[in-house]
């Protein structure tokens, strides 16, 4: 057996975070565990100096700054991290990419409370038929606004964080408030 590199703590953590994110985004609505609570890991997993980041939280702003990312206003950011739920108006100004370059749409990371609040029905790729979840601590009108502003394939992705739990909502998912 030849020697192989040993993953550093940073590598192990970001690899596990990525695994949770990719799993969550490919199966919208299903809960996945992050290796650690909070959003700082997600910043370290995805963001570097090629990114433009907006954070609504001072602690996360420090983490983001340390990655070398440019700190920008929400309308110019490709990754947004919030400590408190933002208002629905935010969705209207987010980057959505273009029909030619849909990958330029933003990635939005929000806190929420999973299992409480209004019931949502999800359909779309990654969902076997349809799925109902309860998501609380989200601004009123948020899901209606999301539906109103996005036109597939343009749009943005949302990761909902509750402690160490994560739910991914790609732009391809239809969300109906029940």
């Amino acid at each position: 057996m030849t020697a192989h590199p040993i993953p550093s703590d940073f590598e192990t953590r970001t690899n596990a975070t990525y695994d949770a994110l990719i799993w969550a985004l490919s199966r919208p609505g299903l809960v996945r565990q992050l290796p650690m609570p909070g959003q700082a890991n997600i910043v370290e997993t995805l963001v570097d100096r090629e990114c433009a980041v907006h954070t609504g939280d001072d602690m996360l702003a420090d983490v983001a700054r340390r990655t070398g990312a440019t700190i920008v206003d929400p309308d110019a950011a490709d990754h947004l991290f919030f400590g408190n739920a933002p208002t629905a108006d935010l969705l209207g100004i987010l980057r959505q990419g273009t029909d030619m370059y849909p990958e330029e749409g933003a990635t939005l990371v929000l806190p929420c409370s999973i299992g409480q609040g209004p019931k949502l029905r999800l359909t779309g790729p990654g969902v076997d038929g349809s799925l109902e979840i309860k998501i609380g601590s989200i601004a009123p009108g948020f899901w209606e606004k999301r539906r109103a502003v996005m036109r597939y394939p343009m749009g943005f992705e949302i990761f909902l964080i509750d402690g160490a739990q994560v739910i991914g909502l790609p732009r391809s998912t239809e969300i109906e408030v029940l």
């Binding site: 940073f10 590598e11 970001t14 990525y18 994110l21 990719i22 985004l25 490919s26 997993t45 995805l46 963001v47 570097d48 090629e50 990114c51 849909p102 990958e103 749409g105 990635t107 790729p125 990654g126 597939y152 394939p153 749009g155 992705e157 790609p170 732009r171 391809s172």
Partner: peptide
């Protein structure tokens, strides 16, 4: 690490827009 972060970002977007 930076190559991995780029691939992470792009695979997530690729999953969000299937087939693109």
């Amino acid at each position: 690490a930076s190559a991995k972060r780029e691939i992470r970002r792009k695979t997530l977007k690729a999953i969000a827009v299937p087939g693109c």
